[in-house]
Nucleic acid binder design. Structure first.
Lengths: 341, 341
DNA sequence: ATGAAAGCGCTAACAC
DNA sequence: GTGTTAGCGCTTTCAT
């Protein structure tokens, strides 16, 4: 059997007795071609299994119809961090891109600096970039905003950012968590999370805000403490919580952890130390990952709609690519109350 | 500010006082260029922030250095199926591709038939395809194997497959699970899983095999039953298990569920019915998803190395692209014993 | 409504 | 070692 060279537009043109541009127009549903000709061309094309060469098309056109999505796997793999939230987000983005017929180029930042990621657009491999998480590279992102690279970021939303961000309303999430814990009659509060992350810090601010509003009413007998973790893995959280339980009494009776994984670890450590959840201590997590519902006890958590998030990220990026300047948006958060609180 | 047109190779050539091909050679570290010239060209290129146009390059070259990865998000989203195993696999593949400097084009089968996915290679958007899960489209994959499209599949590994597959040794996994349950002195066995899936069916076969080997020794007082679920979600599994507990006694005292999610659901249902795990019933799951370790009780599960799996998938696909015919491979499975059994 | 010609940015063949 | 020429497969003028 002879080597099969893929059919080109020229081949189809010859087979259909028309010219190359006519084939092009027919395939693109141009109004400049007779319905009859179009039918004929399409017939011939499908019969011969013709598929357009995307690379030639991309070279010729100004747009690649491809979006680069940057997702930091590495931090997830090494410690089996188990917070699958980011994957749900990826699914949301994937679907939104599919609806717009955009290809999704998945990039890992591990192998490439933000600098070189920026060049993915100038190298015309993609029209724009979606960063799923700022991953401690905010400075790089700010630098990238200077260059004419269309991109949007899932992460903390702040007025001062020079780029478009979409993110959960972290402040509101923390606020809701605190309100709920106050409603349970708790008084010794603990916040768990690495406040070096902007998102986490906002959650803490909302948390504190709700508590301080309450201060007056409750004769200032509220106690707020912090446990900062720079490693969100289950293991690290568990160790830290175990240490804490061994420490000075009384231990907190209300915990807000900035991730479900950490919340689960803490619950586990507390129970191992003989404390009951929610009897002795109420716990609230963040992200409402699927496992939270099945945890024992089922975990109260702050949920955000990843589906909407994905659609929003894509929509804004499209605007950015068209040269407009989309606004950042915060997504409503919702407290899913379960047995852990 | 004037509109910035991206610099082309020609621009760099002019700026460096050399010809276009020389720039090309310099960038590609061709031995056909003086070290001095190369330095000079590279200097000019970096100084002017030149990045090569990947589309032009792809059009010209026979390879795109891009791999399409097909991942069925939809089944995961709708019922929050929560088995993040496939994402870990994606991470493994992503890393392996990164190491080989291959781009990863993420495709959702929802928007595209296998037929059209096959054309992604002929359209030169990618050199080959990695299917992460056969997702009930085995017939399509078999059809695709007829066409000259390089692809590999994560899924069931069987001698008769006309394509290259990489997968966990499902038979061995089921076998190990049964052996372990037998070691716990159990006698009323239940297998949970949709045996229409080839992978699941193999797990069941290994499970049955181990039990039947034991039959002789134990005076045939073993009981084996099945619970088939066509929906692996936590909710469906939970409902089915709840029904079962209400049914005729005695209930099983040893359960092997073909996914961790289902295992968790069953444990939860059984405990709600007043049964204890592992006192009354031992449970073993499959995949060892991160949540398994944190479940209550921690779940015994069959683990497979996704990191190795990703590397293997990529390696074999590369061979396929080079025109060779890589062999299918089964990955060793390991039983991670935890408190649930 | 259709065709002829030009050119997107790159690399491979061939000259020198 | 370097430059010249040609062409990858497509879309877009510009004719007709």
């Amino acid at each position: 059997m002879a080597i099969k060279r893929a059919k080109t537009m020229e081949d189809i043109a010859r087979l259909a007795n028309v010219s190359k541009p006519t084939v092009s127009r027919a395939l693109r549903n141009s109004p400049l071609v007779t319905e009859e000709t179009r039918r004929h061309v399409l017939d011939v094309a499908t019969k011969h299994g013709y598929v357009i060469n995307r690379n030639a098309q991309k070279l010729r056109e100004s747009r690649a119809n491809t979006i680069a999505v940057v997702l930091d796997f590495s931090s997830h793999r090494e410690n089996r961090i188990s917070d699958p939230f980011i994957f749900n987000l990826l699914a949301g983005v994937s679907e939104a891109l599919g609806q717009r017929d955009q290809d999704l180029l998945l990039c890992s930042p591990a192998h490439s600096s933000v600098e070189s990621l920026g060049s993915i657009t100038t190298s015309r491999g993609a029209d724009g970039i979606i960063f799923l998480g700022e991953g401690g590279r905010r400075d790089d992102l700010i630098a990238l905003a200077e260059r004419a690279v269309p991109f949007v970021v899932w992460g903390a939303v702040e007025k001062t950012l020079p780029y478009c961000a979409v993110g959960s309303d972290n402040f509101q999430g923390g606020f809701l968590a605190a309100k709920h814990l106050l409603d349970q009659g708790r008084s010794r509060f603990l916040f768990i999370g690495d406040t070096h992350h902007a998102e986490i810090n906002l959650r803490r601010q909302g948390f504190i805000k709700a508590l301080s509003e309450e201060m007056g009413a409750r004769a200032a007998n509220l106690v707020v403490s912090d446990m900062s973790l720079d490693d969100f893995s289950y293991g690290a959280s568990h160790r830290a919580a175990t240490e804490m339980v061994k420490g000075p009494r009384p231990v907190p009776d209300a915990i807000f952890a900035a991730s479900d994984t950490a919340a689960m670890a803490v619950i586990s450590a507390f129970r191992a130390a003989g404390l009951s959840v929610p009897e002795d201590v109420s716990v609230v997590g963040y992200n409402d990952i699927p496992a939270s519902e099945h945890f024992h006890p089922p975990l109260t958590s702050v949920r955000q709609d990843v589906h909407v998030a994905g659609a929003l990220l894509v929509e804004k990026l499209m605007l950015a690519i068209e040269g407009r300047s989309p606004q950042s948006t915060m997504l409503e958060t919702r407290l899913i109350v379960r047995a852990s609180s």
